[in-house]
Design a protein around this nucleic acid. Sequence first.
DNA 1: CGAATTATTGAACGCTGTCAACTATAGTGG
DNA 2: CCACTATAGTTGACAGCGTTCAATAATTCG
Lengths: 248, 248
Amino acid sequence: MIQNIQIRELTPRHLRQSCTNCSLRELCLPIGLTPDEMQELDTIITQARPVKRGEALYRAGEPFKSLFAIRVGFFKASVISEDGREQVTGFHMSGELMGMDAISSDFHTCDAIALEDSEVCELPFGEIEELAGDVPILQRHLYKVMSREIVRDHGVMLLLGNMKAEERLAAFLLNLSQRFSIRGYSSSSFHLRMTREEIGSYLGLKLETVSRTLSKFQDQGFIKVQNRLIEIIDGDSLKKLLNNCQGE
Amino acid sequence: MIQNIQIRELTPRHLRQSCTNCSLRELCLPIGLTPDEMQELDTIITQARPVKRGEALYRAGEPFKSLFAIRVGFFKASVISEDGREQVTGFHMSGELMGMDAISSDFHTCDAIALEDSEVCELPFGEIEELAGDVPILQRHLYKVMSREIVRDHGVMLLLGNMKAEERLAAFLLNLSQRFSIRGYSSSSFHLRMTREEIGSYLGLKLETVSRTLSKFQDQGFIKVQNRLIEIIDGDSLKKLLNNCQGE
DNA sequence: CGAATTATTGAACGCTGTCAACTATAGTGG
DNA sequence: CCACTATAGTTGACAGCGTTCAATAATTCG
């Protein structure tokens, strides 16, 4: 990523490329656009925009204009109920697309908060949509990305509806591990960007339960916890926790 | 269903009309297609297909070909975890679209089971997609429908992650009430199509808790329960249950 | 370095799950 | 049509998991 930033300062063309790059996983390369089509996509996508830790990329209630592809960084998305309760609906990292919930009503329904200094690419939805009308493969890809979000949400429902605290934490750690791994980071040792309270909100647990369960995993030798640094020592045992419960 | 088949054999135009009808809420009328475009949509949508109570419209793992618009009836959608736990991810009624989770992988990820004798219209996704490329308003509508599903799922997460049993049940009943009302049925008196266990699976509760809580609501005079027949007597108190918890 | 935030840990309570017995309803076949 | 059986629903007693409240420790940030 540092590479990209340096390239960006040198050559605007490469900036666009790096912007295309940003949505690499979610929008471009894997779907096989022609160079021309990618060019066109590039002209739509505005330049990378920084979002500092703690800042909101958007907030519930704001009018919807664009989707955002995370170039670098880490975000949480959360809905706030009328009576003020926060539910974290997801944690999102580089290459992922945010804001799809807003399409339905033309207003954002979530807050998106950066949990570390981040950079996003803005994808003006109207223009993306228009381009998608001409480029079937892009259209299809958008459907797929949204569908994937629905599938992910179903997984969270399963977690919230059926699992015990230990299973939820295990699933959470394994999921993070896998996603870091895909992005070229260590799958066995990573830094949590969120507080215990935010983990708890996502998993439907109180922060004390999160803390206790992490400690328990550490006592059992499954992981090593040092504040927000997690080291997975025995991933297989964590996986067992997930399947053993009724599968036995 | 027999009626429809007969109609079809007599007058194809009427069959198609009834099919358009089926996806009325989700696909056609509200988005303002021209007669020509609706005509084209009609040719894509295959004839109404009956699904008997207890039958699966589709099952997880089956290859994905079509979305389904519910013409009449009532369905549950559920995911089954590896170790056999069922999570009901939603209940769906006439006018709603099912199967969008399958777009991402080209395989269904849910089971869709009819909870009463139903009829659906099959919308072959490939053709719908193609048409959407030519009809921006249809394309946009598909995005919106999928986005709405994501928003709905976030609402369920909030429910599962933050609410107590009473609040979940209250939210559930009020939601059903509203949806029946929109469809022209009574909002204060309706028949539950699902078992206590299925309600529980959806709400992340055990069936005993569902039963107990319904009884409690009845004792408090909020509702009248007679097996699967629900009468909402004091909807305001139910709404209060939802907001009072921390909002006070 | 001090203040604020975040995390850990303990103890007690309460909500919901579990187990069990019983009742009611619906569907089936004589 | 009725008896029978299977399924669905209700209710009670009790236990356990996670929450709540509270005190303390560690870390971050100005």
